[in-house]
Design a protein around this nucleic acid. Sequence first.
DNA 1: GTGAAAGCGCTAACAA
DNA 2: TTGTTAGCGCTTTCAC
Lengths: 329, 329
Amino acid sequence: MRVTIADVARRARVSKATVSRVLNNRGEVDAGTAVRVREVIAATGYTPSAGAVGLARGRTQTVGVLVPHLTCPWMGDVLQGVSDVLEAHGYGLLLHTMNRGADSLTQFTRHVSGNAFDGLLLVEPPDPLSYLTGLRESSFPVVVVDDHGDHPGFPSVATSNRAGATAAATHLLATGRTRPVVISGPAALGCTRARTEGFHTPFTAAGHPTPHHVEADLTRTGGHAATTALLAENHEFDSVFTHNDLTAAGVLDALHEAHIDVPTQVAVIGFDDIDLAAHTQPPLTTVRRPSREMGEAAATILLANLAGAPFPTTPEIIPTELIIRASAP
Amino acid sequence: MRVTIADVARRARVSKATVSRVLNNRGEVDAGTAVRVREVIAATGYTPSAGAVGLARGRTQTVGVLVPHLTCPWMGDVLQGVSDVLEAHGYGLLLHTMNRGADSLTQFTRHVSGNAFDGLLLVEPPDPLSYLTGLRESSFPVVVVDDHGDHPGFPSVATSNRAGATAAATHLLATGRTRPVVISGPAALGCTRARTEGFHTPFTAAGHPTPHHVEADLTRTGGHAATTALLAENHEFDSVFTHNDLTAAGVLDALHEAHIDVPTQVAVIGFDDIDLAAHTQPPLTTVRRPSREMGEAAATILLANLAGAPFPTTPEIIPTELIIRASAP
DNA sequence: GTGAAAGCGCTAACAA
DNA sequence: TTGTTAGCGCTTTCAC
């Protein structure tokens, strides 16, 4: 049988209340008594039941995290950031996935309304998460890690998509490239616009025409196909900026097949800096998305709120960083 | 204020016990009453408090998962497998990391003894986890996902390291390679021995000498260094088998620098099949480690045990699969 | 400084 | 079939 607070109380010849006081470091306990209680605790190996404490206090010391799925390259980084911060503050992390679709979500909402956690971290929630509106109204503490800026009304953490793209463009210009192509995902995404516009700025500012722009699947094959098409139509370009690294890898493939040298003939810059980026041939220059730092920031904001602080009213922006490798030195 | 079971009971003019019966589908309720209760539940949007249920039942419907850290390439896959199974069975997943060292572990053990979860999944626990022995004795349900076979005494899920390595060797032999080099991690690891011996078998069986064997850091630079050393000492080889993909990528780098063609002059086979493997130049032939399936299996075994089934007495082995790509066609 | 007692929201005997 | 009564293990007034 588990040892409970009552057992400790009995063996220390005090009441449960006193044990509780010692446990929670309430000052109002006689030093001698406290020592005696602590000895019994040590001797019995007593640990308070998380569930019972939660029930009595109305707080579970647990944060829920909802991610679309666990298999994309940067998700681990985000989670690690979240986990480190939560752990450091003594909070547990209850992980939920939407991998199984609507079913997952039902389960998740049950956990939410079942008070299984004190606050919520939403990582890259897919756009039409209608049920989120319900959450917002309930004033349940939620922080969104959202690159797309698609969820106004929630406190959020994002990255500097625009500035990152601008840095990429500036670097290309500085290294003598003037005819870039931009390969982006669907224009509807918030981050697409930010990255595209951010990239345009330095070029137009320098008097160059607006860079050529192509939409594609943000996958390796998407990048490959888009590049092949560009080559087929004899579009002239001396550099490519893609909205993620996988796409850039596809671009490298296509250029390689066409015997176009990277970076002498065409420079390539990606976005994200996933593991793969350092391992392409040639290694990929890319705009690092600070996934881990975003996770840390989101967790920090949420915990601050649980501790009584108000949420910040504007998104917290973690800056990107241009990682220069051989594909665009 | 939250709506509680008492509220529902009052509005449905029954006792809390009856509401509880309806909630848990105990048959012994009058159909009419049940309908009435359900209506009130729907109308009020009542959801049972997870904590209270847990306290009353003595079970939290939650499983703890302890991973070394979240940033290694296949961890996401394992977790996705675990998460899918747990979710499908209505279990929550409490995630813990050992990223912050001893501190993490303390926190974790507090959660364990605090009864925060019903069972535990240990993913690749680093070798000397002394506190695990305490766990084993406590007969708390634990399943280990462990490639190394280093934790006897726990029910575990592993992969067929030996068979996978044998498959790699057989493939090399079948394609005319007779002088391979094996690059492994420290010999102390269980999986090192299995993979090394598994690889040797077909060669010695076919009358070839035991393959040359080198120990290295299982990193990209480790693979690079080992290969460079081999070349420097003029060791002759027509193929390389590494114990993970990152190392294989380093081997490819070194061969590339030495202007040795892959696969015509030297074939390369890795292990794991992480994302990177499909993206090296040339793409890497590798032994796929079924991470996701291992996660699923571990979760399934644990849940079965929580449901009353005994643990299997031998490790569950999920087979590897040889993925043939251009580095060893 | 300490204890008694009343919850927190639910489940589970035991009666009726 | 249903209600009553105890808990589950802890926190927290409120007296003393």
